[in-house]
Computed example of a mutant assay.
Amino acid sequence: MAVHFHEEDLPDGVLAGSGAIAVDTETMGLVTPRDRLCVVQLSDGSGDEHLVRFGPGSSYDAPNLKAVLGDPSRLKLYHFARFDLAALQHYLGVMAAPVFCTKIASRLTRTYTDRHGLKNLVEELLGESLSKQQQSSDWGGPVLSEAQRDYAASDVRFLHRLQAELAVRLEREGRMHLAQACFDFLPARAQLDLAGWPEADIFAHA
């Protein structure tokens, strides 16, 4: 298992294939248009993780990365896909779908708890430990520390295994069709966020 670090794009041929891709992002904050995209993490589940860093003033011209993210035949695995989809759309101009979101799957199956963070899922479902210590660190600095790189990689390291476990639970509880409807709506939800409706429930009567 290795963590591979790349500047501004994936090298040619990296992550080529047809299997599901785990995806995560690191940004300067939680307001997508304001807080720039700094790192995109990816894994195909084979044991290696790839980190693509974008520096200040980046043009986000990353054709290899965009090709992987924009491939409509490859499932993308996320934890809280809504945020990552919006960031990738805003900065890279690509809607990285189709989607499986482990946070939504957890909410639909683990109704016995309100703990749906990635750390909680990894610990309960996989018996692994996940540190979130670097979550709020400065991702826009000139150098990413080894701790930051390890943290970023860990955010995609477990998503394939989580997806497999949560898919079993969704089938067991008879909620796979409902989950799939939610996953299919996530690109539109991300676009609503970007268009100015981040919190308003446009389906509400009021």
Score class of each variant (00 low, 15 high):
residue 1 M to P: 10
residue 3 V to S: 04
residue 6 H to F: 13
residue 8 E to P: 06
residue 9 D to N: 13
residue 10 L to I: 07
residue 12 D to Y: 14
residue 14 V to Y: 12
residue 15 L to A: 05
residue 15 L to H: 06
residue 17 G to F: 02
residue 19 G to A: 14
residue 21 I to Y: 00
residue 25 T to M: 11
residue 25 T to N: 11
residue 32 T to E: 01
residue 33 P to S: 11
residue 35 D to A: 04
residue 35 D to R: 11
residue 41 Q to T: 04
residue 45 G to N: 12
residue 47 G to Y: 10
residue 55 G to Y: 08
residue 57 G to L: 04
residue 58 S to N: 07
residue 58 S to W: 02
residue 72 P to R: 12
residue 73 S to P: 06
residue 75 L to R: 08
residue 76 K to S: 05
residue 79 H to C: 01
residue 80 F to P: 01
residue 82 R to V: 12
residue 85 L to D: 06
residue 86 A to F: 10
residue 90 H to W: 13
residue 93 G to F: 14
residue 95 M to V: 12
residue 95 M to L: 14
residue 96 A to K: 13
residue 96 A to N: 14
residue 97 A to H: 07
residue 100 F to W: 06
residue 101 C to M: 04
residue 106 S to T: 10
residue 118 L to N: 00
residue 129 S to P: 03
residue 130 L to F: 03
residue 131 S to C: 03
residue 134 Q to Y: 12
residue 138 D to Q: 15
residue 138 D to R: 13
residue 144 L to M: 05
residue 151 Y to F: 07
residue 151 Y to H: 06
residue 152 A to F: 02
residue 155 D to G: 08
residue 164 A to V: 06
residue 165 E to G: 00
residue 168 V to T: 07
residue 173 E to Y: 12
residue 173 E to G: 03
residue 175 R to I: 05
residue 178 L to G: 06
residue 182 C to T: 08
residue 188 A to E: 15
residue 194 L to C: 10
residue 199 E to N: 05
residue 200 A to G: 03
residue 200 A to I: 08
residue 204 A to M: 02
